[in-house]
Nucleic acid binder design. Structure first.
Lengths: 230, 230
DNA sequence: ACAGAATTTTAAAAGAAATAACAATTTGTT
DNA sequence: AACAAATTGTTATTTCTTTTAAAATTCTGT
C-alpha cells in the first residue's frame, strides 16, 4: 500500500506535524495552506485521500467540500476544533468518511488514514482483503473469521479489535491505541480492552494462557504475531 | 455500474445537495433548474435516470412527465412535498417508478436511485439481472430465489428485504434504513426487521445461528456479505 | 522475596438482538 | 360468502453482547 495524501491546513506547523506522522507510516503527503491551492493540486495530481481542516481563510472547508465532491470521490478526513461541525457535515450528507476532533492523537489520525486508504483502494481493485494466519482466514470487511473453513463465532466488537490488531500486526499497540481506534472515542473505560483480549484469546488461541498470536508486551500493550516459528 | 442522473429541481441548493449525495455514491449527475432546460439536456445527452421535483416554475412536473414519457423510457423518481401528488400521478397513468416525499432521507433516495439504475440498465442490455451468492441465484424482477435451480419459498416481504440487503451488500444497514426503504414509510414498528432477518436466515443460511451472508453488526444494523474465500 | 504496578480473570448489570408464539391481515379456493 | 392457508405484523421472553467493576494473579525492579 502506497498512499498519497493531500493535507489542507492553514496553520503550517500543524500541517507539517501531520506530514511527519504520515511519513513515519510510509505515506507520502502534500500540504496545501488554502482551499484554492488544494483545488490546484488536485487538478494536477492524483491523491488517495484528503485531510481537511474545516477552518480555513478565504474559501472555507464546507465550501471546499461542496465543490470538491462534485469532481472527486476519494475519501476525506475532516479535522475540526468544534465537534458540532460533525452534525452539520452529516446533515449535508457529507458524512461519508471520517471526522476527527482537535486536538487529536497522532496515532488515531494515522490509523484512520491507513484504514481509509486500504478500503478505498481495494474497492477500485474490486478485490476483497483477506488476512490469513495459521488455519485462520479473516475477511476484512466481512466481519467473518473462519478456521479451516468453519465460521468462528466472534461478536462485532471482537472482530473489530482483532481486525485492528491484525492490521497493525508486528506493532505494539497500547490499550489506549486500541481504544481510540476501535471505539472511536477519546475517553472511556479502557479496562474493556483487557476483557476483549482475553475473549479473543479464548476463541482463537490453542492455549489461551500461552498465546501464539496475541501476545502481551508488559508495560507497553499487545502485539499480534502473524507467523511464529514452531 | 456508472450511472448518469438528471436532476430537475428549481431550488438550486436542494439540487446541489442531491448531486452531493449522488457523487458520494459514485454517480454522475446533472442539474436542470426547469423542465424546459431538462428537455434540452435529454435531447443532447443520454441519461440512466431522472429525479424530478413536481413543483417547478413554468412547465410543471406533471406536464413535463406527460411529454417526457412520449419519448423516453428511462426510470423517473418523483420528489414532492405533497404525498397526495402520488395519487394524481398514478391516476394519470404516468409511469413514475418511484415516489419520494419531501423531506427525504438522503440514504433512502440514493438507495432507490442505485437500485433503479441497476434494474433498468439490464433492460438496455436485454439481459436479466441475476445476483449470485453461494448456491443461490436471485432474480431481481421475478421475485425469485433459487438454490441449485430449486425455487426457495420466500414471501414477498422476505424477498424485498433480501433484495435491499443485496443491493447494498457490503454496507451496514440499520433497521431504520431497511424499514424506510422496504416498507416505504417514515414511521412504524421497526421490530419487524429483526423478525424478517431471522426468517431469511432460517431460509438461506446453512446454520442460521452462524450466518455467513446475513450478519449482525451489533449496535449498527445488518450487512449482507457476498462469498469469500474458497 | 517483596512492594507496587500492570495484567488477567471473574462476575454481574445494562443494553441490544434473537426467538417463539400468537394475532391480524391478506390471499386463494370452493 | 365462507373457509383454509399463507403471510405479515406484534409482543413477551430468552439469549447474547457490551460494558463496568472488582478481585486475583502475574510481572518488574529493587
Amino acid at each position: 500500500m502506497k498512499g498519497k495524501v493531500l493535507i489542507i491546513e492553514d496553520e503550517e506547523e500543524i500541517g507539517e506535524l501531520i506530514q511527519l506522522f504520515l511519513s513515519n507510516e510510509g505515506l507520502d503527503s502534500f500540504l496545501a495552506v488554502s482551499a484554492e491551492q488544494a483545488l490546484n493540486y488536485l487538478d494536477r495530481e492524483s491523491f488517495d485521500l484528503v485531510v481537511l481542516d474545516l477552518n480555513l481563510p478565504g474559501m472555507d472547508g464546507f465550501e471546499f467540500l461542496l465543490d470538491f465532491r462534485k469532481h472527486y470521490t476519494i475519501p476525506v478526513i475532516i479535522v475540526s476544533a468544534r465537534s458540532s461541525d460533525e452534525d452539520v457535515i452529516a446533515g449535508l450528507g457529507l458524512g461519508a468518511d471520517e471526522f476527527v476532533t482537535k486536538p487529536f492523537k497522532p496515532k488515531l489520525l494515522t490509523a484512520r488514514i491507513r484504514a481509509l486508504i486500504r478500503r478505498s483502494s481495494k474497492y477500485s481493485q474490486q478485490q476483497r482483503l483477506i488476512f490469513r494466519f495459521g488455519d485462520y482466514e479473516l475477511d476484512y470487511d466481512g466481519y467473518l473469521l473462519k478456521k479451516k473453513g468453519e465460521i468462528v463465532n466472534l461478536s462485532t466488537r471482537e472482530i473489530e479489535v482483532l481486525r485492528f490488531l491484525i492490521e497493525n500486526s508486528g506493532k505494539v499497540l497500547s490499550p489506549d491505541d486500541i481504544f481510540t481506534s476501535v471505539w472511536q472515542q477519546e475517553y472511556g473505560d479502557i479496562s474493556a480492552i483487557a476483557v476483549y483480549i482475553q475473549r479473543l484469546r479464548k476463541k482463537i488461541e490453542e492455549d489461551y494462557r500461552n498465546p501464539q498470536y496475541l501476545k502481551t508486551i508488559h508495560g507497553k500493550g499487545y502485539i499480534f504475531i502473524k507467523d511464529f516459528i514452531k
